[in-house]
Write a protein that binds this DNA or RNA. Sequence first.
RNA 1: GGAGAAAUGGCCGAGUGGUCUAAGGCGCACGCCUGGAAAGUGUGUAUACUUCAAAAGGGUAUCGAGGGUUCGAAUCCCUCUUUCUCCGCCA
Length: 424
Amino acid sequence: MLTLKVLQENKEQVIERLSVKNFKAEDVVNQILGLDQVRRSTQNSMDNNQSELNKIAKEIGVLFKSGNTFEVNLLKEKNTQLKELVKSQGEELAQIEKQLNNLLVQLPNLPHSSVPRGKGADDNIEIRSGGNKPSLYKDAVPHWDLAKKYDIIDFELGNKLTGSGFPVYKGKGAKLQRALINYFVDEATAAGYLEIQPPIMVNEDSGFGTGQLPDKEGQMYHVGIDNLYLIPTAEVPVTNIYRDVILSASEFPIKMTAYTPCFRREAGSYGKDVRGLNRLHQFDKVEIVQLQHPEKSYQALEEMVNHVEGLVKSLNLPYRILQLCGGDMSFTSALTYDFEVYSAAQDKWLEVSSVSNFESYQANRLKLRFREEGEKKTILAHTLNGSALALPRIVAALLENNQTPEGILIPKVLQKYTGFEIIN
RNA sequence: GGAGAAAUGGCCGAGUGGUCUAAGGCGCACGCCUGGAAAGUGUGUAUACUUCAAAAGGGUAUCGAGGGUUCGAAUCCCUCUUUCUCCGCCA
């Protein structure tokens, strides 16, 4: 969430910036600033009364020892009244802070100055692209047919076990999953990311820290009996490792990677977008996360984009990199690049990675701060993350693009992980 | 799941109702000492909010979390969480 300070000091710019995300902020910002005034004066008054109360309590202690019971009783009486006042002011303050927080949480992150205005996906800007679209032989089919033909992914069996969107991978299909996971994690660790194996359920605090709660409550699976959430991405547990932490500037950059299954309810999704592997409730993903100094976070973002680009290239998939417009960006992001790969038989571009800089938006929720060498004051760190990569759509594109009458060819870089060169 | 014990600053650890403004130690930072270092020695050493133009300084809160008792709580009471020991179950 945005800091009060940013709102106080740059009110007009904040409103202007948020309009890039098509968010009308003026009313909320005004409410916040007004409420903050009330909060300050209330707290001031309460603090003074508390101070007075503490002082008197000490006097009572001294008088008590000297046996001056008359004076003691007089002061007790006074303090009882003061206490009432402090208590009611405290309740008032708690109420105000709660309201203030509810309002602050409603404001999305400020988009970076390079972010174009726009309504949705059509207004995203292609940054660059690579690879060539394959020319398929004439009987080529979409991946869901290939999955059935070679018996490597069983969607109906998943329906039986759980429900739609929970496929079962079998034989070479399962092995391909493991191969991709291992390849991606190996590449990330080679690039200096520390491998993490986090829990795949998180508590409310973690969900709040990275911005899933309260906004995206309905997108996560909730285990009610224990009040835990199945993670929609490894970003949540991995970034929350540094919740409530104060780093020193010399510790940057902190780079972590994690393979986890991801769970998304995808409420409201339907139709042909959800066919086959295109949109699942459970899928595998390798995530990369960086914590960086604010002055270096955009450099880190470029580095992460290059890393992801290297992966897609190495798999010989036609890809394009888009910079998201204000209207298509997530609530918490300041700048996002999406990676899409071309899945030939569907003739569709599929999003396989989203790399974002959140600047201090998550860090403020997480209370993730750092200190410059020798300085006393704490500064919010910047957080970034990206998929490197999400498996299902990569698998979809690999199956579709590499199909031949003899079978599906496995890219070179994966062969030492799969142990086979073809699915037939 | 049952029974018992515990949770104090970066770390160890004292503290059972009133200078706790949390002892002492370790660590860390800066000085002194030294040819240099070690040892020794001195000083400092949390976070958030707030006051102030800013700095300095001040106020408030925080001893696992949240409530309560009291004029006053690290200390007493209640609830929750986590850890340890034992028992049960178990990959």
